[in-house]
Design a protein around this nucleic acid. Structure first.
Lengths: 123, 123
DNA sequence: CATGTCAGTATCCTTTTTGTAACCGGTTAC
DNA sequence: GTAACCGGTTACAAAAAGGATACTGACATG
């Protein structure tokens, strides 16, 4: 990626922004990671496990579902239960997540590591 | 990146979140792109060009500067002017932006392109 | 000194996001 | 029926993000 033209910039910006919006939000990443590491979950399970309000959870899951990153399965049990999980399509995000993880780690080092050998705030 | 352990997940999530927060916000991407394609700008120039309020611009630039993505240079002119530009370090973001651009484009096709050839709700 | 430019801040306001809590309709258990 | 669990929504509150606008302080022009 050398230098982009005006037009390329705009469309690239749009695509990047789309991606950004898809995974932005306080809970989306955490939800994906939760499914990723622990498999599918029911609605109430998520509420308790993550300590998220049902209202917000419902909204986040709907958005993830809209973007095909999460599947919603109604199980034919009495007290009908609903299971959520990541989709295979979600794997297409891997390069993005991976790049962000790399940069985030490197960046943390850049920002925190080189502040000054003496000076120190931290929390 | 195959399957991550509990611990790996948490730290990866943190790094990803850091990256996300660094470039989230209504103007950050646009600012970076603006510098990228048109070079450095003065404060007022940005206000007019992007139609952003000085209050918000100031905040966004400060945040970008904190993250070393943007440089702030006070020019020794009368009416002192201040020039902002992307830093060389900003280039380290390229893989992230690139991955997000790719996915954003592919995802747009996935969501909009394949709704269904027959079925259709539409609005 | 009044007027204008510059970078940036202070004050106030609107919109968006997130959270709290009560609740609905359905089912099971008593 | 009453209570409990399920998925989920509704109505409301709090907080964060974004925005409009006036203003400060520095310098310059006339």
């Amino acid at each position: 990626m050398e230098h982009l033209s005006e037009k390329e910039c705009k469309s690239a910006g749009m695509a990047v922004r789309d991606t950004l919006e898809t995974i932005s939000g306080k809970w989306k990443l955490l939800l994906l990671l939760t499914f990723y590491k622990g498999g599918r979950r029911r609605f109430r399970e998520l509420v308790k496990e993550l300590n998220i309000s049902p209202r917000v959870l419902s909204k986040e899951l709907q958005e993830l579902e809209m973007h095909k990153l999460v599947s919603r399965t109604v199980c034919d049990t009495r007290p009908v239960t609903v299971e959520y999980d990541i989709t295979p399509y979600c794997k297409t995000l891997a390069p993005v997540i991976s790049a962000m993880k790399e940069w985030g780690e490197q960046h943390r080092a850049e920002i925190l590591g080189k502040k000054n050998t003496s000076e120190n705030g931290g929390e």
